[in-house]
Write a protein that binds this DNA or RNA. Structure first.
Length: 193
DNA sequence: CGGCAGATACGCT
DNA sequence: GCGTATCTGCCGT
């Protein structure tokens, strides 16, 4: 992992979450690369009761306690996988949930993975995004970001602060008012407004 | 379209 | 047992 990215991801998830907007998430597959622009994120910190890491490390959440720059993949609702970028120093359990992405390339593969032709419905939610990327297990959880599996690419054009909208997070009961969801203003691929 | 039930299995109490 | 960082389809408007 590049030093620049390592420095970014070593920071607090609440700092990193808005900074990841506009970055590209790339999945390398034998059939080719799948690329999406990150358009929606949420921060989950160890001190946050809504975070899986809140009660300390477990077998499931061990990856969140690693040094920033790894993947944390979890399974929920009996059928969905979701992807986080682990952030912060080793020993602190935190990460950034990637909630939605704008398809850039490998679109035919994503359509097949998602069983839909509707481009607006390919990755506009965390479970959908994981499915679009072909993630159907937790085997990549704990994996360091790397060009052989999954990695991040910096934005071509720097995202302006004025283009970022902050809101409460989706689908949680605890700490439901915390403004820890970030998305790109007017972007068509976010999960909801 | 908006709201809601149902699916489904795993981690933790 | 119970709750879950969700999605889809089906229903009514």
């Amino acid at each position: 992992m590049k030093a620049e990215l390592y420095k970014l991801l070593k920071q607090d998830s609440r700092v990193v979450a808005p900074l990841l907007l506009g970055w590209k998430i790339v999945r390398n597959t034998p059939q080719g690369k799948i690329k999406l622009k990150i358009v929606e994120t949420e921060a989950y910190h160890q001190t946050d009761p809504a975070s899986h890491s809140f009660r300390g490390p477990t077998n499931r959440t061990a990856a969140m306690f690693e040094t920033g720059g790894r993947l944390y993949v979890y399974f929920t609702y009996g059928m969905h996988y979701c992807i986080n970028i682990v952030t912060g120093p080793k020993g602190v359990g935190e990460g950034v949930l990637i909630r939605a992405g704008e398809p850039l390339s490998g679109i035919e593969m994503m359509k097949k993975n998602r069983r839909t032709e509707d481009i607006l419905n390919i990755a506009n939610g965390p479970g959908k995004l994981a499915q679009a990327l072909g993630i159907a297990s937790t085997e990549l959880s704990g994996e360091p970001l790397n060009e052989l599996t999954i990695y991040l690419v910096a934005p071509d054009v720097k995202i302006q602060e004025a283009d970022i909208v902050v809101s409460p997070r989706i689908g949680i009961k605890k700490a439901a008012d915390e403004p820890l969801r970030f998305y790109l203003k007017k972007n068509k691929y976010i999960s909801r407004t």
